[in-house]
Design a protein around this nucleic acid. Structure first.
Length: 837
RNA sequence: GCGAGAGUGGCGGAAUCCGGCAGACGCGCCGGCCUUAGAAGCCGGUGGGGAAACCCGUGCGGGUUCGAGUCCCGCCUCUCGCACCA
């Protein structure tokens, strides 16, 4: 062992050894139970940032710990190499993504290895590799067969000057990010996946998962299941068919419905109105759309606005003729695009009514005196209550009335119970180059309607063509692939005649929806992965990543898994059992790290200065796993000092305890105390690791290190106890600071020549419960709940014995002598409380 | 507005699951040792008040309990998410 702690020489040495011995390969411990530990798929930027460091430190601790607990561990890593950042860089710099990406990957991979992350690189994958994206296309075709794929028109952002479609993030304040033109809205065809068909299964599946409540709640809200009644309000003086269908969750308030509000572009409004009124409403609709673009889709507009259409509809329960308005707060895309407005019991309707002077009818009264007994003048009463002025339903509580009114509507054939979801189908078409080609061709002869003809399986993959970057990736005009004739022009798989390929590519969320399965059979070319491998490894046991993916990726990959299960590709309906969302790493200034703020701390520099072990310890110690943390140079130094102290401790003592551990059982006095500390630390650190409390686990190790440093052996028993403490430290440190742990382990005379003696695979230490159990314990003594002293009693002491000992203590006697002891509370091994008058 | 989470020393944070000695561990700071001096390292101290005995102290106000940072009720503040979803 060197005198000085020099991570620069020590760390690469151990990394080399691990690689040479191929220690982290999964699937070689055949009899052992499996554990699948996974970090979210990274986009391979050229240099790792601190967020990546944090995720991989977390998964690496879990992976290394699991290995030492005897698991066959799968801890793979790959690259989310398709996508917008690479394409944008290509547009800007003219460098083909296929050239840049491998360089970025190589560099990022180097950083991962420099951190000492224990990855099974034999399973590395890149989503831009045809061997991977071929299976995206295969899945697309299988989903098509199952009726899960369809073509629809959808609104997109369009820049008239660049003549191209823009992603949401390319729109800044309603303007094009590149040229600053005002963005328009356009309808274009796209391919969509019927994720909504799985809405209820996605909802129900959440209950069985060990996910943060926050994420499950977000998913529930996002899916947004809402049970209600769809009911018909016929238009007065129009055809039977021309009726407004409205959706409501509050059927109990239908007697209070004083008007109908429809979305400005509601088809029935369009159909029934002509002339000046129609023009007025169309202009209004355009204004509402523009406002929505400005503040972002769905955001609440400042004020409610509307126009009276002049149409009248009949309330099917009161028979009353009520006006039909169009209003900016009614969404065309949700429910039926029209609502019955009940101003007395809905806040939005109330506000609208206030502005336009429409009638308010109070039909639900609070059940008890808690609420208002009469209509409040300033807001709607939105709670459940008891119905009034509601015909036959008067007197019923809201819950019952809802059902009764729904049943009545159904009986009369004017309504039916309906479920609505906030969740929309998943549009996967992207007008970009750097993604998976959609395996579809269009043939005028076989497919005159342009529905799309699937490419046969044997023609997969549809390869992304090589391109002249300067000509194709201009960021302007048609989708890039449309400019590549050799790609576009093809033969129809049905008639063999001339046909055109689909030129859109797939959303990269498709890649990340099933990559965790591809790791199982990464080189398989007959299937995306094998059932045999799926049965061995799925589901992912722990999935670690940022909470920002709570709804998109984490919903899509659950959907995909459910489809795969239906296809019998795997047994489980959920991809990941436990989800851990790690907090973000903030800069020294407490702000989010970003280049523009100039507060970015480079992992490379930290590793170069202090070594990987220091970086790992710091990032795990500074805050609990799920919480945000701030970068602190002083805390980094602190971890470096801790490692330095450990190194010195072993340099000074390791030699003399080699082979002496067997004498530990003779330990007496202080030596015995050290042994107790050692075994208590094993127990605590183990529990803390299981609970992902890495910060406190490390602090437990520091405590043991401090205790061992303060101890000086005087006899064989002492040397044994110290030897045991040092071996334990090296063992427990292994998941956190693996290089240092190996170095310390070697210093204790363990050679790593044999694979079996490798610290990484050596069994995790087991605490001796007998040693943890104390013989004597300190008991806190309280008088009237205040701490007044402490007594030392045998751990096995009976209540009576403890009480007597406490009462005899001189400090305590000061407090209780001459007073009446009304009660004595004794909690064995913890405390005594005298309650005196 | 709705939902979730969090408020503890100068700082990051322990203890919160299951009520029982608040402040583990680290940083910072103060003092000392070593040194020509510094760096590094080592030793000691460090919630506030007080000479001490003691008193006070976990966002605020109540409650339950022998005992509350922890449980219950009502507020305040902050963070995150959703935000006209009928």
């Amino acid at each position: 062992m060197q005198d000085r702690y020099d991570p620069k020489s020590l760390e690469p040495r151990w990394q080399q050894q691990w690689a040479t011995k191929d220690l982290f390969r999964a699937g070689v411990r055949s009899g052992a139970p499996k554990r699948y530990v996974l970090a979210m798929l990274p986009y391979p930027s050229g240099e790792m940032h601190m967020g990546h460091v944090r995720v991989y430190c977390i998964t690496d601790v879990l992976a290394r710990y699991a290995r030492k607990r005897g698991f066959d561990v799968l801890h793979p890593l790959g690259w989310d190499s398709f996508g917008l950042p690479a394409e944008n860089a290509a547009i800007k710099e003219g460098l083909h993504p296929a050239i840049r990406t491998p360089n970025n990957i190589a560099s990022f991979k180097e950083d991962v290895n420099a951190l000492g992350i224990s990855i099974d690189w034999s399973r590395e994958l890149s989503t831009s590799d045809p061997g991977f994206y071929k299976w995206n296309q295969w899945f697309f075709l299988r989903m098509m067969e199952r009726g899960l794929v369809y073509r629809r028109r959808s609104r997109v952002n369009f820049c008239p000057s660049c003549n191209t479609v823009l992603a949401n993030e390319q729109v800044e304040d309603g303007r094009c990010w590149r040229c600053g033109s005002v963005v328009q809205e356009r309808e274009i065809p796209e391919w969509a996946l019927r994720i909504t068909r799985y809405a209820d299964r996605l909802l129900e599946g959440l209950d069985g998962l060990d996910w943060p409540e926050r994420v499950s709640t977000m998913q529930r809200n996002w899916i947004g299941r809402s049970d209600g009644l769809e009911i018909v309000f016929p238009v007065v003086g129009a055809d039977e068919d021309d009726a407004f269908r409205v959706f409501t969750t509050r059927a109990d308030t239908i007697f209070g419905a004083t008007y109908v509000a429809a979305a400005p572009d509601h088809p029935l409004v369009q159909k029934l109105l002509k002339g000046a009124k129609r023009k007025e409403i169309d202009a209004f609709a355009e204004r509402v759309r523009a406002a929505a673009r400005q503040v972002g889709e769905g955001a609440a507009a400042a004020e409610k606005e509307g126009i009276d259409t002049g149409l009248r509809a009949r309330n099917p329960f009161t028979g009353e003729h009520v006006p039909v308005w169009v209003a900016n707060f009614v969404l065309a895309g949700y429910g039926t695009g029209a609502v019955m407005s009940v101003p007395a019991h809905d806040q939005r309707d109330f506000e609208f009514t206030q502005k336009y002077g429409l009638p308010v009818r109070w039909v639900v009264q609070p059940e008890d005196a808690a609420g208002p007994a009469a209509p409040p003048a300033d807001k709607a009463f939105t709670e459940y209550g008891v119905l009034v002025e509601s015909g036959d339903f008067t007197g019923l509580p809201s819950e019952q009335a809802r059902l009764a009114i729904a049943a009545e509507a159904q009986r009369r054939g004017i309504g039916r119970p309906t479920v609505n979801y906030h969740l929309r189908d998943w549009g996967i078409s992207r007008q970009r180059y750097w993604g998976t080609p959609i395996p579809i061709v269009y043939c005028k002869r076989c497919d005159p309607e342009g529905k799309g003809i699937p490419v046969p399986d044997e023609d997969l993959p549809v390869l992304l063509p090589d391109i002249d970057v300067k000509e194709v990736l201009t960021g302007k005009g048609e989708p890039p692939l449309a400019k590549v004739p050799s790609f576009v022009n093809t033969k129809c798989p049905r008639c063999g005649g001339k046909a055109r390929r689909e030129v859109d590519t797939m959303d990269t969320f498709v890649d990340s929806s099933w990559y965790m399965q591809r790791y199982l059979s990464p080189h398989e070319d007959r299937a995306p992965f094998l059932r045999h491998d799926a049965d061995r490894w799925l589901p992912v046991d722990v999935y670690v990543g940022g909470p920002e993916h709570a709804v998109l990726h984490l919903l899509y990959f659950r959907f995909w898994t459910k489809v795969m299960q239906e296809m019998s590709l795997c047994a489980n309906a959920e991809p990941a059992h436990k989800l851990v969302t790690q907090g973000i790493v903030k800069g020294r200034d407490g702000e989010k790290m970003s280049k523009s703020r100039g507060n970015v701390v480079s992992p490379r520099e930290i590793i170069a200065t202090y070594g990987a072990d220091t970086a790992r310890l710091f990032i795990l110690f500074a805050a609990p796993t799920e919480k945000d943390m701030e970068w602190s140079d002083e805390q980094v130094e602190g971890q470096f000092r801790f490692l330095g102290r450990l190194h010195r401790l072993f340099a000074a003592q390791a030699q003399r305890v080699v082979g002496k551990t067997v004498h530990a059982s003779q330990a007496q006095g202080e030596a015995l105390e050290l042994r107790r500390k050692t075994h208590r630390t094993i127990a605590r650190a183990t529990q803390q690791l299981e609970r992902l409390q890495f910060n406190t686990a490390i602090s437990s190790l520091m405590e043991l290190s401090n205790a061992a440093s303060a101890f000086e052996p005087r006899d064989a028993g002492g040397e044994g106890a110290l030897g045991e403490a040092l071996e334990t430290l090296a063992q427990l440190l292994a998941p956190f600071a693996p290089h240092m742990a190996e170095e310390l382990w070697a210093a204790l005379g363990h050679t790593a020549a044999e694979r079996d003696d490798e610290l990484s695979l050596r069994p995790w230490p087991v605490a001796d419960l007998q040693l943890i159990a104390e013989e004597t314990v300190h008991i806190a003594v309280q008088v009237n709940g205040k701490l007044r002293g402490e007594v030392l009693v045998p751990a096995a002491a009976a209540e009576e014995e403890i009480r007597t000992a406490a009462a005899l203590d001189p400090k305590i006697r000061n407090w209780i002598d001459g007073k009446t002891v009304k009660k004595v509370v004794v909690i064995p091994k913890r405390l005594v409380n005298f309650v005196v008058a």
